[in-house]
Structures are given as C-alpha cells and as structure tokens.
Simulated scan of single mutants.
Amino acid sequence: MTIRRLILRRLRVGLALLLVVSALTFVLVALIPGDPAHSILGNTATEAQYAALREQLGLDRPLWAQYGSWLWDALRGNLGESLIAPQPVASVLNADLSVTLPLAIGAVLVSVIVGVAGGTLAALRGGVVARLIDLAAMIGLALPSFWGALMLGQYFGVQLHWLPATGFTALSTSPVGWLRSLVLPVIAVGIGGVATVAKQTRDSVDDVLRQQYVQALRVEGIPLRRVLLRHVLRNAAVPVLATGGTQFVAALGGTVIVENVFALPGLGSTVVQAATEHNLPIIVGAAVYFCVLVVLANLLVDVLFALVNPKVRIGS
C-alpha cells in the first residue's frame, strides 16, 4: 500500500470517528445534571423566563434534532456559538488551541527525548544503571499528573520563584515569558510518559544489540557510537514511534488536569468550565478538536512508521 492510499484510508477512518465522537458527546452531555438556562439567567429568574431562553437557544427540541442541526452546520465549517458568551465556538477553541497544542507537543518531546536517552542507557549499561532507570520510570508512571503539577508549582514557583506557578504569557507578548510559563506544565504532563518510552526503548535497543549483524559490526572494530546511530537506534525506532503516538494522546488527556492546576487558558480548562455551565456547543466543539488532534497524530505516526519500515506499506 502506498503512503497516499495509507493517508486516505486513515482519513476515512478519522471522519467516521469524528461522527461517532460528536454523537456520543451530545448524548453524554445531555445526561449531565444541569441547565444552561440557569447558568445564564441565574437562580432568580422565573420558570417562564427559563423556558423562553431554552426555546430561543433551541434546547427545547429533541436531542436528535439538535444534533442534526449541529452536524449540518459543522459540515459547512460552523461549530455554533457559545451558550454563555456570544462568541463563535471556533474562535474560542482556536485561542485555547494555541495553549494546549504547544503544551502537548512539548510533553511528548520531553517523554521521547528523556525516555529514549534513559532506555538506551539502560540497555547499554545494564545492572545498577538499568535498575535505577527502571525505578525512576516506575515512580514517574505512578505519580498522578495533578500531584506532580502541584509539587512542581509549589517548589519551583512558590518557594524558589524560578518559574511562574500559575498563569500564561502569550508568545506574541513575550517569547521568553511564554516559554517560562510552559516549562512546569510540560514537565508535569510529560514525566509520566517517560516511563513507557524508556521501557519500550530499552527492550527494542536490547533486542537489536543481540542481533548477529550488530555483534559482527562490533567485532570488526566499528565504534559503538557509530553502530548506535546508524544501525541500532534506526532499527529500534519502529516500536518507539508507535509508543510516541500513544504518548500524544495521553498528553492531551493530561492537559485537561494540568491546565487547571497552572491556570492556563487552554482546551482543558475551557472544557471543565463548559461542563459546569452545561455549555453544549463548547463541549462538543472541544471533543471534535481533541479527536482531530488524535487522528492527525496517529496519521503522522503511521506515515513515519511506513517511511521507517517500508513493509508497512504492503501490509496495511
């Protein structure tokens, strides 16, 4: 299978997934206790005023009719307007995406870079070094992201004042401030993925090192560094790439909690607020955005996987 056919196939699956996710989100949000009319008007309005607002917003219609109208508008590029504030959903989420996307990508980079380095070192050294790296990886995996975020903010932000404990600086305002405001959240989200990447890298590198052709290269006197860069890491990269895709999905989930801990105006904090307000258009739009990011990340991993391992093009 060519890369072009692979991309088209994954996009078809992605579109079907978007349809399922949006429909399920509509149903699940309908089951959440709460009423957007009460969130907008407060608790002092009359039942007639609540009913009038529900009719104005179209919330009095059956759920399938609401979803049908939303889907028709979404197919034309319109995700609707927020029920609480008169803003297009796309505008709100695009602004949030400028926070969440760098956070998720940075977390994946931390997971991959630290995990690959640690896993490679564990495979090469073995013994005490391998056990120490395994222990550190297990601790990172066991710690909840919110607890790590709280500890990082408390120590490096409140006590040492090295980095901001909360808040976000836009890139256009100050590139340095933007970077500083993301350091602790990126570490909090990415530290859990280090364990998975490190273990996968160690197993993959260890397996490649035992191959006869690698041992033959070492016998011929080729430096270990050259063997690692040209042969071992390249062949061990295939399973690590697959792990990287799952890490991006996990990082997106971690941003929901970490953004609220560090008071970052991203998709995660917006979803939490929208859920408390029963703001259906925002919740469904955010679900679509998250789904699109997951589909694109998996598509990128599949393409890289096919480039690294040409057998995938035939077998997919």
Rank of each mutant, 00 (worst) to 15 (best):
Leu280His: 01
Ala297Thr: 15
Val295Cys: 10
Pro281Cys: 10
Glu259Trp: 01
Val292Pro: 11
Thr276Gly: 07
Gly268Cys: 07
Val301Tyr: 01
Val301Arg: 01
Val249Ser: 14
Val295Glu: 09
Thr246Phe: 15
Leu267Gly: 08
Ile257Cys: 05
Val258Thr: 12
Ala287Arg: 03
Pro281Arg: 10
Ala242Ile: 10
Phe290Met: 09
Ala275Glu: 03
Gly244Met: 15
Gln247Tyr: 04
Gly245Thr: 07
Val284Gln: 07
Pro265Trp: 12
Phe262Ile: 10
Val240Thr: 02
Leu252Met: 14
Ala286Gln: 05
Ala263Tyr: 06
Gly268Ile: 01
Thr243Val: 04
Val261Arg: 07
Val284Arg: 07
Leu293Asn: 07
Asn298Val: 09
Thr276Met: 02
Val292Trp: 03
Thr243Cys: 03
Ile283Cys: 08
Val256Arg: 04
Val284Leu: 04
Thr276Pro: 00
Thr243Asp: 00
Val301Asp: 00
Asn298His: 15
Cys291Trp: 00
Glu259Thr: 11
Gly254Phe: 09
Val256Gly: 03
Asn260Val: 02
Cys291Ala: 15
Leu293Ala: 12
Asn279Leu: 03
Leu241Pro: 12
Val288Asn: 04
Val288Ala: 14
Ile283Tyr: 14
Asn279Glu: 04
Thr243Ala: 05
Asn298Lys: 13
Thr243Asn: 02
Leu252His: 03
Val295Gln: 08
Leu252Val: 03
Phe290Asp: 02
Pro239Trp: 13
Asp302Lys: 12
Pro239Asp: 10
Gln273Leu: 06
Ala275Leu: 15
Gly244Val: 10
Val258Cys: 11
Gly285Tyr: 02
Val271Tyr: 01
Val261Ala: 13
Phe290Val: 14
Val258Asp: 08
Gln247Arg: 12
Leu241Gln: 11
Gly253Pro: 13
Val294Lys: 09
Leu280Trp: 07
Thr246His: 08
Asn298Gln: 15
Pro239Tyr: 13
Val258Ile: 12
Ile282Tyr: 02
Val256Lys: 06
Leu300Thr: 15
Leu300Lys: 01
His278Val: 06
Leu280Glu: 13
Ala250Phe: 11
Asn298Gly: 11
Gly268Asp: 05
Thr243Met: 08
Pro265Tyr: 09
Ala263Ile: 15
His278Ser: 15
Ile283Asn: 09
Leu241Met: 13
Ile283Asp: 10
Gly253Ala: 13
Pro239Ile: 10
Leu241Asn: 08
Leu296Tyr: 02
Pro239Ser: 14
Ala297Tyr: 11
Ala274Phe: 02
Val240Trp: 12
Ala286Glu: 05
Val261Met: 14
Asp302Pro: 05
Phe262Tyr: 13
Ala286Leu: 05
Gln247Ile: 11
Gly266Phe: 01
His278Gly: 07
Val292Lys: 06
Val249Arg: 03
Tyr289Ala: 13
Gly254Ile: 03
Leu300Met: 12
Cys291Glu: 00
Gly244Glu: 01
Gly253Leu: 14
Cys291Gln: 03
Leu264Val: 00
Leu293Lys: 03
Gly245Leu: 07
Val303Gly: 08
Val303Leu: 02
Ala275Trp: 00
His278Arg: 15
Leu241Trp: 11
